[in-house]
Write a protein that binds this DNA or RNA. Structure first.
Lengths: 156, 156
DNA sequence: CTACACAGTGAAGTCACTTCACGATACCCC
DNA sequence: GGGGTATCGTGAAGTGACTTCACTGTGTAG
């Protein structure tokens, strides 16, 4: 996708910074999507795998809340993931209504690959950048994120 | 949507920064989407309006290339936008195959509203942040974006 | 035991997006 | 002028991610 936000002309430093942030968001998202597509997972599916990889085996409802989507949606995503042999649904040991979702071996190795890809990318992105500049950049990021969160009160 | 990338534990500064960038991308995207939804446009539709607002009246194919999507997709999006009275399709003055798309009055005022919302947000995001820190942050952003682009060669 | 809350899923629909095929037009070369 | 070919927009059909609503089966509190 093209830049979509390449505002030309003069604007305030803040406006310019915001534009750059949008640009970052798009570029980063696109690149990420590409990397995942190469490994055969979409963004939504990868989100599920990621959540499982971080939170361990979990109920479908837990996944839904964690991802901020409908339980029904999780069902569908899991159907696909299970079909690909990346994920396994087992009966919950104590609650017979629920299913416990966990990564299979293939699922685990895929998430590991994704993670290492991410690390590699992180390394490449900041090489040669002075340590303190990275720190300053990150600090700025965190401040901005914090303020953004403050502006987005709901269940985000 | 929840964070999705809240990697806990120790990691390199670069890895941490990357995580923050993902967080930014998501939070920013979500907030943006919310703001647009309040005004009754989706992200894709807003992209079209934005392009028109920047580039002036344009052919549908031009819009498609500019947005990086299929011409067919633009047709559909425009059908909706036209139905909402935000956009107008007129015969191209010299090329009878093509249509010239332009914003209607309502379309212009909507994009103006979106733009002012964006500016307001930009202002709120960086208030109280020392001017030079904003500059440093933006510089970091630009460097990162440049490197990202270098890693994503195709028609992006 | 009853009433109610909660887990997962079928059915149906929306939205953004794609590919393929097609009719209408523009353009270029002989 | 006439024929070949590229281009503009769009119908048809399909995908993936998402939603809401209705429903079954199960836990749980009174």
């Amino acid at each position: 996708m093209k830049s979509l936000h390449d505002t030309p002309g003069e604007q305030s430093p803040a406006g310019h910074a915001l534009d750059r942030m949008f640009e970052l968001a798009e570029t980063l998202g696109a690149l990420m999507e590409r990397g995942m597509a190469e490994r055969g997972v979409s963004r939504a599916r990868a989100g599920l795998l990621w959540a499982l990889s971080h939170g361990g085996p979990m109920t479908q409802r837990a996944l839904a809340t964690r991802l901020g989507v409908t339980p029904r949606n999780v069902t569908g995503l899991l159907d696909a993931l299970e079909g690909d042999g990346l994920v396994r649904r087992e009966p919950h040991p104590t609650d017979r209504r629920a299913l416990l979702v966990s990564l299979t071996g293939r699922g685990r190795s895929l998430t590991a690959a994704l993670r290492s890809g991410r690390d590699e990318m992180a390394a490449g992105l900041f090489t040669g950048m002075p340590r303190e500049q990275v720190a300053a950049f990150t600090a700025g990021l965190e401040l901005v994120i914090e303020r953004l969160r403050a502006a987005a009160p709901p269940g985000c």
